[in-house]
Simulated scan of single mutants.
Amino acid sequence: MSSLFVFPGQGAQQPGMLHRLPQNTVVEACLKEASEMLGEDVLQLDSAQSLASTRGVQLCLLIAGVAGSRLLLQQAPAPDYVAGLSIGAYPAAVVAGALAFSDALRLVSLRGELMQQAYPQGYGMTAIIGLDLATVEGLLAQVHSAQTPVYLANINADNQVVIAGSDAAMKAVAELARVRGAGLAKRLAVSVPSHCPLLAQPAEVLAQAFAQVPLQVPVLGYLSGSRARPIRTVEPLRDDLAYNMCRVVDWRGTVQSAYERGVRLHIELPPGAVLTGLARRVFEQGTAIAFDGARLDTLQALLREEGVEP
Score class of each variant (00 low, 15 high):
Phe5Ala: 05
Asn159Trp: 09
Ala157Met: 11
Val192Ala: 12
Gln285Thr: 10
Thr148Gly: 01
Ser86Lys: 06
Asn159Arg: 14
His144Leu: 02
Thr54Ala: 08
Leu85His: 03
Asp158Ala: 14
Pro214Arg: 12
Arg238Val: 08
Glu33Asn: 15
Leu206Val: 08
Met115Asp: 10
Cys246Asp: 06
Gln142Cys: 12
Arg304Val: 07
Leu237Gln: 05
Glu175Asn: 08
Ala98Ser: 09
Leu199Met: 15
Leu59Glu: 12
Asp167Gly: 11
Ala96Trp: 00
Val219Arg: 13
Gly262Thr: 06
Gln256Asn: 06
Arg70Ala: 05
Ala100Arg: 13
Ala288Cys: 06
Gln208Ser: 10
Val263Asp: 03
Val190Gly: 01
Ile129Ser: 01
Leu139Val: 12
Leu269Tyr: 13
Gly112Leu: 14
Leu275Tyr: 00
Met1Ile: 11
Tyr90Asn: 03
Gln285Asn: 04
Gln160Arg: 07
Ser109Trp: 10
Arg281Pro: 00
Arg252Ile: 00
Ala141Lys: 14
Leu59Ala: 05
Asp240Cys: 09
Ala169Leu: 13
Gly181Tyr: 09
Gly253Trp: 00
Asp132Arg: 03
Met115Thr: 06
Glu36Gly: 04
Leu59Cys: 12
Val274Tyr: 01
Gln10Cys: 06
Pro91Trp: 07
Val192Leu: 07
Asp167Glu: 15
Gln201Pro: 03
Ala172Leu: 15
Pro230Lys: 06
Phe5Ser: 01
Pro214Asp: 13
Val282Tyr: 03
Arg227Met: 11
Val192His: 06
Pro120Glu: 07
Glu28Gln: 15
Glu260Cys: 04
Gln74Arg: 13
Ser102His: 13
His266Leu: 13
Ser191Gly: 10
Ser2Tyr: 09
Lys186Thr: 02
Val66Ser: 00
Ile128Pro: 00
Arg70Gln: 15
Gln300Arg: 14
Asp167His: 14
Pro214Glu: 11
Gln285Phe: 04
Gly124Ser: 09
Ile155Cys: 03
Thr287Cys: 12
Gln23His: 12
Ala203Ile: 08
Leu139Phe: 14
Tyr151Ile: 08
Phe7Asp: 00
Phe210Met: 15
Val179Ser: 06
Ile267Gln: 01
Thr233Leu: 15
Ile267Tyr: 12
Ser145Cys: 07
Ile231Gln: 05
Ala93Arg: 02
Leu176Ile: 12
Ala157Thr: 01
Pro271Thr: 00
Gln23Pro: 04
Gln117Thr: 11
Gly68Leu: 08
Gln256Ile: 00
Leu131Val: 10
Ser69Pro: 08
Val66Glu: 00
Val255Leu: 15
Leu18His: 07
Glu33Trp: 06
Arg180Pro: 02
Tyr123Asp: 04
Leu206Asp: 07
Pro270Asp: 04
Asn244Met: 07
Leu107Glu: 11
Ala200Phe: 08
Val274Ile: 14
Glu204Ala: 11
Gln117Asp: 14
Ala301Gly: 03
Gln75Pro: 03
Asp80Gln: 15
Ile128Lys: 00
Gly253Val: 02
Leu188Trp: 07
Gly181Met: 09
Ala189Val: 11
Ile63Pro: 01
Asn159Leu: 11
Ala294Cys: 10
Val94Thr: 10
Arg232Ser: 10
Arg295Asp: 14
His144Lys: 14
Arg261Glu: 10
Gly84Glu: 00
Val274Ala: 15
Leu140Asn: 10
Tyr243Asp: 03
Gln160Gly: 02
Glu305Ala: 06
Glu175Ile: 09
Ser3Gly: 05
Val190Cys: 05
Ala89Phe: 04
Leu152Asn: 09
Gly9Gln: 11
Val66Ile: 12
